[in-house]
Amino acid sequence: MVQINMESNLLGANDLVARRNRALFADKGLLVINLMSSPGSGKTTILERTIEFMDGRLKMGVIEGDLYTDQDALRIEKKGVEVVQINTEGACHLDAGMVGKAFNQLPSADLDMVFIENVGNLVCPAEFDLGEDFKAVVLSTAEGNDKPLKYPLIFHQARAILLNKIDLLPYTDFNLDRFREDLARINPSATVFMVSGRTGEGIENWYLWLLEEVEKKKPR
């Protein structure tokens, strides 16, 4: 019997492609955001509003991850931005290879910012680096304030956390103080935005923050 030592990273193949994506995005001076959340938290609505605001200010592209349908891509397309749909056929996450291929279909020369809307899931997407500049996680008040503790990795990795559906706060048991305390332990440096995708409340802070991030990424 022989023992063969491997020490091979199980996500090595994905990480390699992610690094290639990241270099490509940097080369183009593009800000790329990996937008993640559980299903139904309001990612697409926030994206629609963000597109409306950015219209005339900067050029946006969207890569839409979805299990089977192109419903979200059609919603985004209506807003008049370039969108590429990835159907994962049941897979629970996007990987760097899928994003690289989809990105090649975007007219990237004209773009300032690309959103990757990941598959709705708080577990698997956290493990797959796509080459993005940062991860943004959306949590909605209706899901409950315990989600960061239950899915610490994804909340730990996020640079931006959007608490959505704050218009519903009076109708839920969402404990805002507990939410803040938990985030202070899991990810104290994250920028947190309190928004309502439905009414638009608070969302302007997110837009302005994004504009700053795009400026930082532009080649000097």
């Binding site: 199980l10 996500l11 193949a13 590429v84 749909q85 990835i86 159907n87 994962t88 056929e89 049941g90 897979a91 629970c92 996450h93 990987d95 899928m98 291929k101 989809a102 577990v123 698997c124 493990e127 797959f128």
Partner: peptide, 18 residues
Amino acid sequence: MKYEVKNVHELSIMEGVL
């Protein structure tokens, strides 16, 4: 775009191991 991926991420990771 269509992709041949399995629906639990552990499955695709295990395929990579094997």
